[in-house]
Nucleic acid binder design. Structure first.
Length: 258
DNA sequence: ATGCCTATTATTAATAGA
């Protein structure tokens, strides 16, 4: 079973690229972030014609998340991160697919830090930690996949000194990630590639992709029973090199059958 | 320290991203 996460940076603006990648990579499950489309503008028909069932949470202008699954419809279990009824950002959706619970997340960016946006990011992660623990407590097979907007360690940043005070790399957010892993989740890419520089994002400025000036922001965290089944974890970085690409690359794992 | 680029939304500029 191949499970991917992809911050598509506009699901309609980059629909052709998404469809090409789906045909090419043939993932069984895909978590999409930054749809940048309201609920009614999600390209449901094109996704269906590509062979995928889908659920999504859209929002005008920003955010937006979706879960696609090949040949079947995802069975939605949640479409909000619990803990704050006033948080209206479309940043979380959750579904059961083929016996695995899939959580698709798009964590807040948090810049500029310090400030209200950074406070929102920290509060969002507090809620996410509570919910992640609840998911672990069910002992179900769970994958937390998405754009975490956190580089967990220096190895995940092309030039760590430049990013120390950034909302994606400050100690507070790296500690949130550490606490998450400390609950018992497995960071799939880092576990299979402990020493390697792996990036999932290259910004549009300064020819970042050409210089390989990247960041590792997109993560798949696995509950213990899924971690035991982990076979591969990779980044489709060539997708970032395409014309009109998203600034993120698809990131995926393959797990053995249960 | 800032712009660099790209997208969306609303009307050629503002905002957000990371």
């Amino acid at each position: 079973m191949k499970i991917a996460t992809f911050n598509v940076n506009g699901v309609n603006g980059r629909l052709d690229l998404l469809l090409e990648w789906l045909a090419d990579a043939r993932p069984d499950v895909v978590c999409l972030q930054e749809l940048k489309a309201p609920q009614e503008k999600f390209p449901r028909k094109a996704i269906e014609q590509a062979g995928y069932g889908a659920i999504w949470s859209g929002q005008k202008s920003w955010n937006g998340v979706a879960i696609l699954s090949r040949g079947v419809d995802p069975v939605q279990t949640r479409r909000d991160l619990p803990g704050d009824p006033d948080d209206l950002h479309a940043r979380y959706i959750e579904a059961a697919v083929e016996g695995v619970l899939i959580a698709c997340l798009y964590a807040p960016n948090g810049n500029p830090a310090p400030g209200p946006k950074f406070e929102y990011k920290l509060a969002w992660y507090q809620r996410f930690l509570v919910h992640a623990q609840a998911l672990l407590d069910t002992q179900a097979p769970v994958v937390l996949a998405g754009d975490y907007n956190i580089m967990p360690t220096d190895l995940d940043v092309y030039k760590p000194e430049r990013w120390r005070d950034d909302a994606l790399f400050r100690p507070e957010v790296r500690e949130a990630f550490e606490r998450l892993v400390g609950q018992g989740w497995t960071d799939a890419l880092r576990t299979l590639h402990p020493e390697e520089r792996i990036y999932t994002f290259w910004d549009y400025f300064r020819n970042a992709y050409g210089r390989d000036a990247g960041l590792r922001l997109d993560h798949l965290l696995l509950s213990p029973s899924v971690a035991q089944r982990l076979k591969r974890a990779e980044v489709d970085r060539q997708v970032r090199g395409r014309d009109h690409a998203s600034d993120h690359a698809p990131t995926w794992i393959e797990i053995a059958d249960a």
